[in-house]
Design a protein around this nucleic acid. Structure first.
Length: 524
DNA sequence: CTGTGCAAG
DNA sequence: AATTCTTGCACAG
């Protein structure tokens, strides 16, 4: 009987794929309602009740619900927005400072519920609250908020009860955000990030929705088009359409080999999994940024002296952010968008090391750039610039950007991530560059409060971090011992790609016998 | 290590 | 699709 089960699992059908689905986490996705507009209304309450649009350059980047009711849409041009809605009030949203500040406050509150918070942009966060769920839930908690199309199908793994508890916690989180910051939010509660995000969007302003796994496929199929799956962007969508894949179902049942040819094994697997609502990616704790940059677009500039001027201006802006961050970068990158031939603009970037030590006294803190440093950076930048444009010929540049990176890692070698800060606390000035400005986003007290089993989880996270070069490596512990049901997917990606290569030139390889694995995976 | 491409909000 | 601007990750040479 075991043998029979195995052979079934070799086939690529929904059963085999779904068998890899797990419900062992409770993830909340929190999305601030029309974030910029809410911030503006909080800062200036007289705007409440009026249709409000936030403008950047020539467009309304977002607007409140009053404006939406009157026909204003996101990313609409100012002109048409005002035509549609002459009473529209506009606030300038080009300076992101106030939004960054609010985003940080939100993050702090979320962190008080769980250390596992991942920021997505300024207005979205994932929170893994699995560890806060009562293992022995005697209590028959009721769901707080909406349920997505409940079919009363109960999963034997007990996830429904955990999700119910999760919905109560989500409600608490949202209540606190409202009470302390005056901000309304939407939340989605589900077993993975994908589903949490999608289900949260099903009831829009100021509500929350829970998804029980029995309804996962309904939710994902309700998206209709693959492009609507987070993780599938415009480029992937083009390739999918070229393959004739324009529905979720087609993506689900397209031969994996076909997808691998187009996307490579990793992406192919990932998007097909996503099409079934499966997403094993972890909530990755948001740490300090890995790069800090700024860029500016403009009609067109043609001379080096104009470039130099723009760069100085940009450098001032970026350096302000770098100073606030407190860490010293070791790399600079210059981004250039140039107008090529007819209408077609192309972005290119060049990166190089920078040395701040020359002519600087303090090597502990960073402050404003002195004249020497500024000149040096600008020179470096201009050298990079000459790598992207041939200054003998004429050129047109429509965007310039500067980005700093290569910040010192949290601890000596490979683990440059967040969690270390639980352990490298206040008492250790051993870091080469200890910013006086800001302490880490994590209190070690948080860790100490954690029950022992949670600390265990934290330790597991640490294991996962140094392997950042090869990304996720989830759930090794409870993999079936004898035979794994998801054979192909679990194989190292190189092997998967190899299998594809084999198929292409199979005649040659077949003679090589020993690693002709392909036969095992062919459909019958 | 460097550069490109893709995705996200 | 790209508008705008910013960040992060995967991949390849």
């Amino acid at each position: 009987m075991e043998a029979e089960d195995q052979s079934d699992d070799f086939t690529y059908n929904s059963v085999a794929i779904q068998s890899s689905e797990k419900h062992d986490r409770v993830i909340i996705h929190i999305d601030i309602d029309c974030f910029y507009a809410q911030v503006e209304m909080i800062l200036n309450p007289s705007l409440r009740g009026k249709p409000l649009g936030i403008k950047q350059k020539n467009i309304v980047v977002t607007c409140n619900y009053e404006a939406r009711a009157l026909g204003v849409e996101k990313l609409m041009s100012i002109k048409t927005a005002l035509e549609k809605c002459p009473s529209l009030v506009l606030a300038n949203g080009e300076d992101l400072k106030k939004y960054r500040d609010m985003s940080e406050k939100i993050y702090q509150i979320l962190q008080s519920f769980s250390p596992f918070v991942e920021k997505l942009g300024l207005d979205e966060n994932f929170i893994d609250i699995t560890h806060k769920i009562n293992k022995s839930s005697e209590t028959t908690t009721e769901v707080s908020g909406h349920i997505f199309q409940n079919e009363d199908e109960v999963c034997t793994c007990g996830c429904n009860d955990r999700l119910k508890e999760g919905s109560v916690i989500a409600q608490e989180i949202r209540n606190q955000l409202k009470a302390e910051l005056g901000i309304t939010t939407c939340a989605g509660i589900a077993c993975n990030k994908l589903l949490a995000k999608l289900v949260g969007a099903t009831h829009k302003p100021n509500q929350q929705t829970t998804l029980f796994p029995a309804s996962s496929l309904k939710l994902i199929k309700s998206l209709k088009h693959p492009r609507n799956i987070p993780g599938i962007g415009s480029a992937m969508n083009r390739k999918l359409e070229a393959l004739g894949i324009d529905t979720i179902e087609k993506l689900q049942f397209t031969d994996l080999f076909k997808l691998i040819e187009a996307f490579g094994a990793k992406t192919a697997n990932q998007i097909q999994q996503l099409s079934f609502g499966i997403d094993d990616s972890r909530v990755k704790i948001t740490d300090k940024p890995k790069s800090i940059g700024a860029e500016d677009g403009f009609p067109t500039i043609k001379t080096e002296s104009e470039v130099r001027k723009k760069l100085k201006c940009l450098l001032d802006r970026v350096w302000e952010l770098v100073e606030k961050d407190g860490r010293r970068p070791s790399q600079v990158k210059l981004t250039v968008r140039k107008l090529h031939a007819t209408n077609h603009s192309v972005r290119e970037a060049r990166q190089t090391a920078i040395d701040f030590m020359t002519g600087v006294t303090s090597n502990v803190t960073i402050g404003p750039l002195n004249e020497n440093q500024e000149k040096k950076v600008i020179t470096t930048l201009m050298n990079l610039f000459e790598k992207v444009v041939n200054c003998d010929e004429s050129w047109q540049v429509t965007l310039l950007g500067i980005s700093f990176s290569g910040f010192p890692s949290g601890i000596e070698s490979p683990a440059k991530n967040s969690i270390n800060k639980y352990f490298t606390s206040s008492s250790r000035p051993n870091e080469p560059l200890q910013p006086p400005a800001k302490r880490s986003r994590f209190d070690e007290s948080v860790l100490q409060e954690l029950p022992p089993d949670i600390r265990q989880e934290v330790l597991e996270e640490i294991q996962q971090l140094p392997s950042s070069s090869t990304s996720q490596q989830p759930e090794d512990f409870d993999c079936p011992k004898g035979v794994d049901p998801q054979i192909f997917r679990e194989l190292p990606l190189e092997i998967q790609n190899e299998l594809l290569a084999e198929e292409k030139k199979k005649k040659q390889i077949l003679t090589k016998k020993p690693n002709n694995l392909l036969q095992y995976f062919r459909k019958v």
